[in-house]
Design a protein around this nucleic acid. Structure first.
Length: 466
DNA sequence: ATGTAC
């Protein structure tokens, strides 16, 4: 492959063979050399071969190997002539992040750190097979799929401000009728649970404010205690992805290219439309899943401190969206696939109440390291369809991490003064901070590439892991 | 990520 550095933070992979557009990777030289492997760059090139792709196949500095598309990958396809690909969304549909601000200072919170963390661990079920979530009926589940956070508001699990502080209002229009019974059943027992792997709940302290105005508009102050949640659509979204990948494999409608994992459908084909509809149902499920965790966090903080934490923002980083973008002087409708990549619409493009700032962009680091709140820069609309990175990005596989760090992660967290409540020891080792890229470097790279700029930085006080 | 395998 021919990869060229075209400026300090941009690499171009030239078009070759049947690539329809070039590849563009935003990264610093150091991150590119240290952490970006040939396999994930090959995936950027494979995506560039999919019909209807517009401008380029993009990747963020946290890029790593994924199913078909790289994680950290962004690709937009013509909404009439292009494709939609389940691998471009990923198995965890609307995996994403929410951040709440508590209004408490670190000093006010500190004496209750352990008991509050233990309560959060007990009230928000975590782990692979966690089935202790909210009990909902099948008709409730159907309304969750159709209406997302509107359902949560009708059931007193959300307030109006939560909807305006969630991407797409936490409610994406769909019919709710293209999600299999098996997927619905998995969802019914899992709504309100955290999950496993890199999913987490973290209590944090704001360590740095880089932009005082935006931070105060987002409801964040220095030394304030925040809570961050990273979770998605659990078994329901996974089943939707599994179902449609299988249906595509068995269909003569499918678009097949060099990589079988990139199996796709024309957006306007019946399978394409059904997948998008089911994906939107799963996205609504994930918005509600995060909202129930937010609701539980509020209960715990109200009980211990008499305060009601406010939602800063809740967003998706695994999703495909129909959006309008300016391309070569005209505005066109596209299906933007963001897989391990975060929408970061700047001011004017963001909806109320963030029209004049841009909406908050939440970037978690690895366990025991910092997280960031960013805001999109105007250039990102033409550089990445309004997108930035989603987190640190793995550099070691789970099994490599366990082999190297078993038995020492506990001590490391203790040394950093982070109180950990993991569901299993295994997950603690798999998620060893050293198996991820350095989030400070990833954020520096997206700032350097003019995709987003830092507003605030948080450091962990305690962590709950599936 | 995931009732950890098409």
């Amino acid at each position: 492959m021919n990869v060229r550095r075209i400026d300090d933070y941009t690499y171009m992979i030239d078009k070759e063979d049947d690539m329809l557009v070039p590849g563009i990777v935003y990264s610093s030289e150091a991150l590119f050399k240290e952490s970006i492997d040939e396999g994930s760059l090959k995936q950027v090139m494979n995506v560039a071969k999919l019909p209807g792709i517009i401008k380029a196949s993009y990747a963020m500095p946290d890029i790593h190997l994924g199913y078909g598309f790289p994680i950290g990958g962004v690709a937009a396809f013509d909404a009439e002539e292009g494709i939609v690909s389940p691998g471009g969304v990923g198995y965890d549909i609307n995996c994403g992040v929410a951040l709440v601000s508590t209004g408490l200072t670190y000093e006010e919170f500190k004496p209750k750190l352990k008991v509050v963390t233990d309560d959060l661990f007990n009230e928000i079920p975590s782990g692979l097979t966690s089935r202790k979530g909210l009990k909902v009926s099948s008709s409730d589940l159907n309304e969750i799929l159709r209406f997302g956070l509107k359902w949560a508001m009708d059931h007193d699990l959300a307030i109006r401000d939560d909807l305006t502080h969630t991407e797409d209002g936490g409610s994406i229009e769909n019919t709710g009728s293209n999600v299999s019974k098996a997927a619905q059943q998995r969802g019914m027992s899992q709504i309100g649970t955290l999950g496993a792997g890199n999913h987490f709940l973290e209590v944090q302290k704001v360590s740095d404010i880089f932009d005082k105005d935006s931070a105060s508009r987002f409801g964040l102050m220095e030394n304030e205690v925040t809570v961050m949640i990273h979770t998605g659509s659990r078994g329901l979204g996974h089943q939707v992805a599994t179902d449609y990948i299988r249906m595509l494999r068995e269909s003569d409608q499918a678009i097949r290219t060099s990589d079988a994992e990139l199996i796709s459908a024309h957006v306007k084909s019946s399978l394409g439309e059904k997948y998008l509809d089911a994906m939107r149902s799963a996205a609504n499920f994930a918005f509600v899943n995060r909202q129930i965790a937010i609701y539980r966090i509020r209960e715990v903080f109200e009980r211990h401190f008499g305060v009601r934490p406010k939602l800063v923002y809740s967003l998706a980083h695994n999703i495909a969206k129909e959006e309008t973008h300016a391309v070569d002087g005209s505005r066109i409708r596209v299906i933007v696939h963001r897989k391990g990549a975060t929408r970061a619409f700047p001011s004017n493009v963001s909806s109320s109440p963030f029209e004049d700032t841009g909406h908050p962009v939440l970037i978690p680091g690895s366990m025991g390291t910092a997280s960031y709140v960013l805001v999109g820069l105007p250039d990102n609309l033409t550089k990445s369809f309004g997108t930035t990175c989603h987190g640190s990005g793995r550099v070691l596989s789970r099994s490599q991490a366990v082999k190297r760090y078993a038995g020492i992660v506990e001590k490391e967290l203790e040394r950093k003064n982070v109180y950990a409540r993991p569901a299993t020891k295994q997950v603690l080792y798999e998620e060893a901070p050293e198996s991820y890229k350095n989030v400070d470097e990833v954020v520096e790279a997206v700032y350097g590439a003019r995709l987003a700029r830092p507003v605030a930085r948080m450091v962990p006080l305690s962590v709950v892991k599936g």
